[in-house]
Amino acid sequence: MRKETIVENLNAVGERIVTCCNNCARNPAEITLLAVSKTQPAEALRIAYEAGQHHFGENYLQEALQKQDRLADLDICWHFIGPLQSNKTRAVAGHFQWVHSVDRLKIAQRLSAQRPHTQPPLNICLQVNIDGEHSKSGVAPQAVAALAQAVVPLPGLRLRGLMAIPAAQRDPAQQCGPFAELARLLQALREQFPEQPLDTLSMGMSADMEMAIACGATIVRIGTDIFGVRK
Rank of each mutant, 00 (worst) to 15 (best):
Q68R: 06
A183F: 04
G82E: 13
S101F: 03
N11Q: 11
I130P: 06
A72M: 00
I213G: 03
Q192T: 15
T218D: 06
W98K: 14
I165H: 00
A188Y: 01
V7C: 05
A12D: 14
G223I: 05
L185V: 07
D131W: 10
A145W: 00
E15W: 01
V99D: 09
T224D: 09
A214C: 03
C21M: 09
K231E: 13
L105A: 12
L71T: 10
L71G: 01
E30V: 11
Q187Y: 02
P166R: 12
Q175P: 03
T32S: 15
D208K: 09
Q169L: 09
L159D: 03
V144E: 13
D225M: 01
A148N: 06
A180E: 05
H79K: 08
Q62M: 05
F56P: 08
A25R: 09
R70Y: 04
S86G: 03
I226C: 07
D208C: 05
L74Y: 07
E15T: 11
L126E: 07
A214R: 11
L198T: 05
N129E: 07
M205G: 05
W78Y: 03
A214Q: 14
S137R: 05
H55I: 04
A212W: 09
N23G: 08
V99A: 13
Q97V: 02
L198W: 08
G57S: 00
